[in-house]
Amino acid sequence: MKWAADNCQPQYLLKTDDDCFISTRFLTEFLSEHNSIKTGLYAGSVFNEREVIRNRLSKWYVSTQDFPRSVYPRYASGTGYIVSGDVLQGIVGAASQEKAFPVEDAYTGVLASKIGASLVDTGRFTMYSNKWRVCNYLYFLVIHGVTPEQQYLALKYTDDALEKCPGQSPSTTW
């Protein structure tokens, strides 16, 4: 995030996992033509008041020294989230004042909360790569749990949705 803030100064930044399909066609179109939130944007699939995991055997373990509270503030799943450039700059600034801990998405949520960024909970970032119908691809921006083999198929479905879903068009809201 610091590198992007320092070197790219993007209008928006998408953070996503490597096992996600990104609908680049609809994402870029949505952000440039339909998104009404140009600043103060922090959007994704939201976790509400998740307990901090204190079990040392968990990959999501966080010690009380790293994060003393027992519950995280609301945050967007690391599956994928978008921040506007001003939120990115704020998060990078806040990171210099807040001790890092190893749960990236929760840490980002702590920083976003610290700078007062409001969180948009959207189903357009789905945690599951279920067998979606072709027309669902007019809605999703990020789909988690997509294998390399499924990436091609998801891209094909995105293209197919434009012609196989008569009367429907890509979603224009969060």
Rank of each mutant, 00 (worst) to 15 (best):
M1L: 13
M1V: 11
K2A: 15
A4Q: 08
A5D: 13
D6Q: 14
D6K: 15
N7R: 14
C8Q: 15
Q11W: 12
Y12E: 06
Y12N: 02
L14M: 03
L14R: 00
K15S: 09
D18T: 07
D18H: 14
C20I: 01
F21C: 01
F21A: 06
I22H: 02
T24V: 11
F26E: 10
T28N: 14
F30I: 00
F30M: 03
L31I: 07
S32C: 06
N35G: 03
S36C: 09
S36T: 13
K38H: 15
G44Y: 00
S45M: 12
V46K: 04
F47R: 07
N48Q: 10
N48R: 11
E51L: 13
V52T: 04
I53W: 03
I53S: 11
R54H: 09
K59R: 15
W60L: 13
T64W: 07
F67E: 05
F67A: 06
R69Y: 15
P73L: 06
R74Y: 15
Y75N: 01
S77W: 02
G78W: 03
G78L: 01
I82K: 01
I82V: 07
S84D: 07
S84K: 03
G85H: 01
G90C: 10
I91C: 02
V92Q: 03
Q97F: 15
Q97Y: 15
Q97D: 08
E104F: 10
E104G: 10
D105H: 10
D105L: 03
A106Q: 04
G109F: 00
A112F: 03
K114A: 12
G116Y: 09
G116C: 01
A117H: 05
L119S: 09
V120N: 00
R124M: 09
T126W: 02
T126C: 09
T126S: 11
Y128I: 00
S129F: 08
N130M: 09
N130R: 13
N130I: 02
V134Y: 06
N136G: 08
N136F: 04
Y137D: 08
L138E: 03
Y139F: 13
F140G: 00
L141Q: 05
L141H: 01
H144N: 10
G145Y: 02
T147S: 14
P148N: 11
Q150A: 11
Y152E: 14
L153N: 12
A154H: 09
A161C: 10
L162C: 09
L162N: 03
K164S: 13
S169G: 12
P170H: 13
T172C: 01
T172W: 05
T173C: 05
T173N: 07
W174K: 05
